[in-house]
Design a protein around this nucleic acid. Sequence first.
DNA 1: CGTGTAGTTGAGTATGTTCAAAGTCTGTGG
DNA 2: CCACAGACTTTGAACATACTCAACTACACG
Lengths: 254, 254
Amino acid sequence: MELTFPDILFRRLESIANLSAADRRTVACLPLDVRDFPREQDIVREGDVPSTSFMVLDGFVYMYKLTGQGSRQIPALYIPGDMPDLHSTQLKVMDAGFRSLTPCKLGFVQHKDIHKVCETSYAITSGFWRMTLIDAAIFREWLTNVGQRTAYSRLAHLICEIFIRMRSVGLTKDVSCPWPFTQEQLADSIGVSKVHINRTLQELRGHGLLQLDGNELRILDWGRLCQEGDFDPLYLHLRDETIVPRCEEGIVPK
Amino acid sequence: MELTFPDILFRRLESIANLSAADRRTVACLPLDVRDFPREQDIVREGDVPSTSFMVLDGFVYMYKLTGQGSRQIPALYIPGDMPDLHSTQLKVMDAGFRSLTPCKLGFVQHKDIHKVCETSYAITSGFWRMTLIDAAIFREWLTNVGQRTAYSRLAHLICEIFIRMRSVGLTKDVSCPWPFTQEQLADSIGVSKVHINRTLQELRGHGLLQLDGNELRILDWGRLCQEGDFDPLYLHLRDETIVPRCEEGIVPK
DNA sequence: CGTGTAGTTGAGTATGTTCAAAGTCTGTGG
DNA sequence: CCACAGACTTTGAACATACTCAACTACACG
């Protein structure tokens, strides 16, 4: 939580691309407009044509899409270090909106500055491109999750992903991590009703796989959680092998 | 169906980016290895680390992901002009596989050639990047489709998307387009059983929305199909306004 | 004409939804 | 410090949507 710009962006870009010293200097000079948002506030709306993109410096953000029937899908959750709407540098009109999930600190960058930086270095472009492609890989996996697995398995899978991603940016302590999500947000993420999320979470707790104390998640049986969720972190494309705990039974992430 | 390289790629890139004459020349010089595939053959498998990407010159292709329980999700369908695994230029390990849906003709390009071209022109890079981002936008929409809509609505939505995309590359004739999909492939695309797809298709036909004669789809009521499918083509990010028929009741695409 | 693939049908069942109400927690103002 | 409001979570019961299994039909291809 202590990381600030530009280190948070370095860390992310370097986990997926090789930057030269000059590239690092270029990125560090990106003009950043830092703003605080309260909980549950719109950052960008569907239909907007933004001229900036933002990175999450602190707190959590989610993407959402509304259907004509008034229901809501959350296709992605974002944690510090992520750039949720980086794709808007290339696609003009937003086909989804973004909201703050918790109070959060966001760093806004002008699209024109991003384009300028990208024109100077293909390595940097590559890094940004990859960030958007990892997002796409997560969409694919979520689609598979929602399309093919039971609610119980889906939820286990989501929890595994969140834990691993939190871990990759240093937000976990031992087998615990922040858990800022309401049951309704989880429901909209995996496409079930909030009543059913409640019962499914009770099952996971009842089976001794995890514990939820207020705003903290505690993993009690990582092996079985991965197994129940059919979770394989390949799709997250994390470069550093040490960042990914193996999912065999009994191996607790450290 | 008559388009060949490099025109098919020009048409696609120029529908999403502005290329200079020099850029066009650069793209036209990309060395292409054209190969024919029979129906239902693996092109790239999950876990592979390919050194090429391919574009669809003729025929249809699908992406698939298998779960540990043996079920299959199809997260994307590809038509001529698409570059299904373009993202593999940036992400090394495949987290999904690709198969030919029909007999098809594919053009393979070396990753190193793509990188070389991208290093010379940010406009070209932009075009490729956008292609992958439109794929990502479609994943988001499919996720919303599977997560939030009924089987009936989902299927209507999928049919609308396929028709519009076919139309954008000139594969439609009046209100008809090719329909090479088996019911099982459709089932795996929208996350329902093949038995249920069968019944849902019967409903759509019974309500007079469409007709399926062998390998051809015929739209009978575009307005209601869009309405039932809650379909808005915004997420396809088609640049040319004329390419998108409006979805108001009664307006038949031409 | 036989074989295999894809599409169709029926019946019983499971998973997850909806609706309504009660319980819990937290922050705020008196 | 207590009372209250609002958001979130939990519970029960009836219901709906979609699944599974198994058999049967239609069609294309050799």
